[in-house]
Amino acid sequence: MFINPKTMLLGVFLFALPALGIAQTWTHEGGTLNLDEAPKRIVALNWAATETLLLLGITPVGVADMSGYNAWVKEPELPDDATNVGTRVAPNLEAIAELEPDLIVTSTEMAPATELLEQIAPTYVISVYKPDIRPFDKAREMLVTLGDMVDRKDQAEAVLTDIELTLKQQRDRLEHAELTDTPVALVSFQDHRHVRIYTESSLYQAALESLGLTNAWPNLGNYWGFSSIGLESVAQIPDSRLVVIEPLVPGLAGSLENSPFWTYLPPVRSQQIYQIPRAWPFGGVYPVKRLAVALTDALLEGGSNNVR
């Protein structure tokens, strides 16, 4: 059988393409990004990006504000072998350059520094928190895109499948107990008199909707997904369950027991106060899973008239 030499050469060339490394291009908030191969040394300049890389099984070589991540985000756990590269609002460009990264992940809050970052390494810009954006959708986009960049698409899909399954399981638990009817207000205490109340623009909203729950707070918040209000404003949502998210202000429980703003709130008088562990409200996809499990456990356990 005769084989055309040109056909043979074409086949050899096509077979060799993956080994040669074919550049791929991604469009992002800072323009376009071209990579010849999957990056291995990645610097993350916000905690949502750090969390996302860890979910993909990649430890960033550099992380902005490592101690803050370990204190506030906690999961996924950040190994000690990452290097701190300054703060999230003012990263140390020299420290980043010394790590010789082949990819930097940042957001538009760092727009003034993007050109400088691009002189160090290819830079991917994506903002989970911006006006008129649903944070969970954007966080999911970041996970999928980074999974594609680092050649771990299967891992990204596995993470999302696990989250979807967990959310469904928690919703089934609540529906079986007939606990989805009463709206839920999610708050974090700022001091003894003021709270952040999370709105429909928050990351937490994805957990509430997936659990079949209604957000009790009807007003709009900022693009980070919350409003700062006085305790007395909670009286605007009388038929609701009030869920307090840790950490608590020192001495809070004692102060609330003697506070007229607290003791006369409808959720307090009806013993519809719930307390749950922290789940970072400004992260990627993983806090939605953490919040859903903690919230479901708390609602099934039952409410009280105070925080603990």
Rank of each mutant, 00 (worst) to 15 (best):
A19G: 11
L33E: 01
D102C: 03
A111Y: 12
L10E: 10
P183R: 00
R173W: 06
N34C: 01
E301Q: 15
S227T: 08
R171P: 09
V244T: 12
K74L: 06
L117V: 10
I197C: 12
N215Q: 05
L55H: 06
L54W: 00
R140E: 15
F15D: 08
G251T: 09
G230W: 03
A113N: 14
D137R: 15
F261R: 05
V249P: 07
T214C: 06
G225A: 13
V184I: 13
G225R: 10
Y198M: 05
I163L: 12
P183M: 01
S202D: 07
K130E: 15
R241T: 05
E118G: 04
Y204V: 05
E200D: 15
N4I: 05
L179V: 02
G30N: 07
S127Y: 09
A121N: 03
E51D: 04
R140S: 14
A298F: 11
P131T: 06
V128W: 14
L186T: 02
P238A: 01
T52M: 05
K168G: 04
G68E: 00
L179R: 06
Y198L: 03
F261V: 03
V307T: 11
L213C: 08
R171C: 13
E100W: 02
I42F: 04
T166A: 10
G230P: 07
I273E: 09
V12G: 15
L146E: 14
E109D: 15
L179K: 11
N84V: 07
S227N: 14
P135G: 09
L143S: 04
A90T: 15
V285S: 07
T296G: 11
F15E: 03
P5E: 00
V150Y: 00
A216P: 01
M110W: 05
F189L: 03
N306R: 13
L53Q: 04
P131D: 12
Q272L: 02
R290E: 12
K40S: 06
G221N: 06
T32D: 05
A49I: 09
A253P: 13
D297C: 11
D81C: 11
A294W: 08
R290F: 02
P60H: 02
P5G: 00
D148Q: 14
T25V: 15
M149G: 02
F136P: 12
A111L: 14
V63C: 00
V63W: 01
D239T: 06
R140C: 10
G221S: 10
F13C: 15
K168T: 15
N215L: 07
I126S: 14
V43T: 14
P131K: 05
T106W: 08
G284R: 04
N219P: 09
L78K: 00
S304T: 13
M1S: 13
P91V: 03
A158L: 14
Y129I: 10
W72A: 01
E37G: 04
Y264M: 13
W72C: 00
E94Y: 14
A71V: 01
K6C: 02
L93I: 13
D148C: 04
K130G: 12
Q271L: 09
K130I: 08
P287D: 08
H28W: 02
G284N: 09
V243M: 08
E109W: 12
T214F: 04
Q236M: 07
A64E: 09
E118L: 10
